[in-house]
Write a protein that binds this DNA or RNA. Structure first.
Lengths: 147, 147
DNA sequence: CCCATATCGTTTGGTAGCGAACTATGTCAA
DNA sequence: TTGACATAGTTCGCTACCAAACGATATGGG
């Protein structure tokens, strides 16, 4: 780790957290991002696929793949929006809802393991530093794209 | 982001940072982890592939794929270790070394954008919290694997 | 009305990550 | 010496991420 410190630990933590979430979800044959999609559909009802792009902060091809996997497994339904043939509406199926009710909450598990006993103040610092950093990076990346 | 806060920002920061690094390396047709491998080979000389597993903290199949890509591009050479036929020795090629000398430092770029002006104290808190969390997660994951 | 433009989603091809199962090689104890 | 075990890498199949290019569908100006 001679190249960096904060950045390297962000990466390592992210990978460990994702591994922990996926280990919790593996018995249900579900990936972590697939879980996030179900979470939104359960808590906010059916919505346009377009809307999930903002919520998940991923690019179109990524979401397209995740949704395809959920549709393949019969957990989510994808239908064309009547008022705009370009948009797809997503909703959770009965099967999906039934599965959801048996799922553990991988985020809560992860947080309990990783942050138990960590002062709120420290967590707030982490959030503040990383949010600022993310915003700055995204600004630079956005400019690069438009040019 | 109703599910979490610290974890979610770790993920977002990680993705933004990786995007920034990959944008810097794209003109050279190099991925971020490929860059890490070259960094180690340049700064520490030829080494066993086995050793890189510890340095990069990834699993065997991941490293195998990254190394294959570097070999395919002619930047790295992979040879069987004479004293242990199981091990592969990795070294950077002349082509690889020439390319390295023209590369930007994507870590430095990322850090300059994301953390410029951030107090050292805050960065230290971020590292402390994330390192502790990573260790705890990895301990739990390791136990799960052995059982 | 039509064409340029914008938007939504998919496809293609690439990187990066994992577990499980495999081959080949090395090691050690009986 | 042989058989059990350990170690190094690869391969397979999957998730998840991106950019670039593409079809299909709005939308608005001329």
């Amino acid at each position: 780790m001679s190249y960096d410190s904060a950045g390297a630990w962000v990466k390592r933590f992210h990978l460990a957290a994702r591994s922990a979430m996926e280990a919790a979800l593996r018995p249900y044959d579900l990936g972590s991002t697939q879980w996030y999609v179900l979470w939104h559909l359960v808590h906010e009802g059916p919505m346009a696929q377009r809307h999930l792009l903002d919520l998940l902060q991923v690019e179109k091809p990524t979401l397209s793949g995740v949704v395809s996997a959920l549709v393949r497994k019969g957990l989510v339904e994808q239908s064309t929006a009547p008022e705009d043939q370009r948009q797809k509406l997503l909703s959770i199926t009965t099967t999906g809802r039934a599965l959801w009710d048996t799922l553990p909450d991988p985020i809560a598990l992860m947080r309990a393991i990783a942050f138990e006993g960590t002062p709120e103040e420290d967590l707030a610092t982490v959030v503040r530093v990383l949010r600022t950093g993310t915003e700055r990076l995204n600004n630079v990346l956005k400019v690069g794209k438009k040019s």
